[in-house]
Structure formats: C-alpha cells, structure tokens
Computed example of a mutant assay.
Amino acid sequence: MVTPLEIFSGFSVDDIPAAKAFYGDTLGLSVSDGSMGNLDLELPSGGHVFIYPKPNHEPATFTILNLVVENIDAAVDDLNAKGVQTAIYDDPNLPTDEKGVLRGRAAGQGPDIAWFRDPAGNVLSVLQD
C-alpha cells in the first residue's frame, strides 16, 4: 500500500519569471523560488503546486487550477483590469457572456465560472459556487 507523506500537483510553463509575476503579482498568490529552478505555489488551503520550466512546454488544454472566489463578477473585473482575458471560449456548448462567464447557477447547472490563461497558455478558472 502506498502511504504518502505529502501530495502535491505540478504543471509546466515555458517562462519561470513570467509565471512568477503572473501567479504572484496578477493573481496575488504566494509564490516562492524552488531549489531546482522551479516555483512553489502555496495554495490558500495549505497545499502546494510545483511549477516547473519545460523548454518544449505545450499548454494544458484542460483547467489546471480552479480559484474559488466570493464574487465572480468582481474577480473577472479585476482580472480584466490587469489585462487578463476571461472570454477565451466561443463555443455554443459552453455559453459564456460578454465577460466570459458561464452562468451555471442561474441555469441550475453548476457554478458560475470564467476561464483564462496564464502566460504559458495553461487554462485556469475563477468560479463562484
């Protein structure tokens, strides 16, 4: 039986300084330099994510991080004011409004959620449950 002492997730980026600025300054998360040229992203719940450089990085086509927020409109407005585009999908199966928010709560189909990309092209979201 596997008995882990700790569990953490990780993902790649193509530019560590850009990732550090984005996750630390733009998103306001706690980011520190790791010992192997990586970044350590500390989550509000106490967990950690390993962000590592990869020269042949390909952006994740799935959501790598979901940031739960109290007010999705305020979060989207803040991201947009910082130059982060939240209207990244144009898909009739994923009907988002002009801000890029899928209004799932009003439809009784899950949370309100908006997706956006980090500088490496990885997909993230803000959501209000």
Rank of each mutant, 00 (worst) to 15 (best):
L127T: 11
D25E: 14
T61D: 03
V13L: 06
F8H: 12
L27S: 02
T86E: 02
M1R: 12
Q109A: 13
G47F: 09
V126Y: 07
A60L: 09
T61V: 08
G34R: 01
D112Y: 00
E98R: 15
L43W: 03
A18L: 11
P44V: 14
N122C: 04
V31C: 04
A81W: 05
P17A: 13
M36Q: 08
V49P: 02
G100E: 10
S9D: 12
F50R: 08
Q85Y: 01
G110R: 00
V126T: 05
K20Y: 07
D90E: 15
K20L: 12
V123F: 01
V2D: 13
G104S: 03
P92E: 14
T96G: 07
V68K: 13
D129V: 14
N80V: 15
A107C: 04
Q128L: 06
K82H: 04
V13G: 02
L127N: 11
R117F: 00
F8W: 10
A120I: 06
V101F: 03
N66G: 09
G110P: 02
G24M: 09
D112H: 03
G47M: 08
P55F: 04
E58I: 14
Y52T: 12
V13F: 01
M36K: 06
A114W: 07
A106L: 04
D97K: 10
T96N: 12
P95T: 11
W115R: 10
L29D: 01
D73W: 08
G34N: 02
R105I: 15
K99Y: 06
N56W: 09
F22M: 13
N66K: 11
P92T: 08
H48G: 09
P92Q: 13
D91N: 06
R103T: 12
Y52C: 10
A60D: 09
R117K: 15
I51R: 05
F116D: 05
W115N: 10
D91Y: 00
P111D: 05
N122K: 07
N80W: 06
D33T: 01
V84M: 05
A106C: 07
D78W: 06
L127D: 06
S9R: 10
P55K: 15
F11L: 07
P111H: 06
L39D: 00
S32H: 07
G110Y: 01
D14G: 15
Y89N: 03
Y52M: 12
R105V: 13
L127Y: 11
I16A: 03
D91Q: 02
P17K: 12
D73P: 09
I72G: 04
V2R: 14
L67C: 10
V126K: 07
P17W: 11
P55N: 08
Q85L: 04
T61L: 02
L5I: 14
T3H: 11
N93W: 09
D112E: 06
E6F: 12
F62Y: 13
L43D: 02
G121K: 08
D112N: 13
Q85V: 03
L39E: 00
V76Q: 07
D77G: 11
S12R: 05
D90Q: 14
V49W: 06
D15R: 04
D129L: 14
N56S: 14
Y23F: 15
I72Y: 03
N122S: 03
V84W: 01
I88H: 00
E6M: 14
A18C: 05
A60F: 05
E98W: 09
Q109V: 08
A106N: 11
T26S: 08
A75V: 08
